[in-house]
Amino acid sequence: MEEIYIGKRANRISGTISKIGYTLIIVVLIFIFWNGVNELSTSNIDKQETSLSEAIDRDIIQCYCLEGVYPPSLDYLEQHYGLIYDKELFFVDYRPIGANIYPDVTIIRIQGDAKKDL
């Protein structure tokens, strides 16, 4: 009788250990999946920022080649050269220095870090 009780107790212990093991495996897999999605999101935002920088540079140079002066504002690039970007994700500080001096352009990520925390 005692052997049956010990056997049942051993089965309960091994069942509990296997449940904990399965739970840990699921938690680790969820963490790995979440971390991968987070890395892809960050990489995508980095690529968008690089693309925006290249588009602004291209439009500034194209404006200078066609008109002989650098664009007076970022709005000018948007209206005449078709510059489009996500204004909720990036802030572009555009400072013209002079008609024949390349403008100072700074791109600041607004929500990139906030989305990273989600």
Rank of each mutant, 00 (worst) to 15 (best):
I110T: 11
L89W: 02
E3I: 04
L29G: 15
L83D: 04
Y76G: 14
T16E: 07
N100D: 11
P72S: 03
L29N: 14
L24T: 13
K19A: 10
Q79G: 14
T106R: 01
E39F: 02
L40M: 14
F33N: 10
E39M: 06
V69G: 05
I101N: 06
G112N: 04
G7N: 02
I110W: 00
N38A: 10
T16P: 01
Q79P: 09
K87C: 09
R9F: 04
K19V: 09
Y102E: 14
C63K: 02
R58Y: 06
L40F: 04
D93S: 15
L29T: 15
I61T: 15
L74V: 08
S53W: 00
Y85I: 06
F91C: 09
L89N: 05
Y70E: 06
I110H: 02
D46N: 13
L52S: 05
Y64S: 13
W34C: 14
I4A: 03
I6A: 11
N100G: 07
E78A: 15
D93C: 04
G15Y: 01
P71S: 13
I26Y: 06
I45W: 00
C63V: 11
G112I: 01
C63S: 15
I20P: 04
A114E: 02
F90E: 05
D57N: 15
T50G: 09
G21Q: 01
C63R: 02
R95T: 13
I32K: 09
G98E: 02
L89M: 07
I4L: 07
I97L: 09
A55Q: 01
Y94H: 14
R12L: 15
Q111F: 01
D93Y: 03
G68R: 10
Y64F: 15
I17M: 15
S41T: 08
E2D: 12
K115S: 08
D57A: 13
G112W: 00
I61Y: 10
F90H: 14
L74Q: 03
P103F: 00
I45V: 03
M1S: 09
D59K: 10
V27K: 05
E88M: 01
I56R: 02
Y22G: 11
L52C: 07
F91Y: 10
I25M: 12
Q62S: 13
Q62C: 13
D86Y: 00
R12H: 10
D57L: 10
N35V: 10
P72C: 03
L24Q: 08
G68H: 02
I6M: 06
R109C: 14
S53D: 02
K87Y: 01
I61L: 13
G15W: 01
I97N: 04
F33E: 09
G68I: 02
G112A: 12
V27R: 00
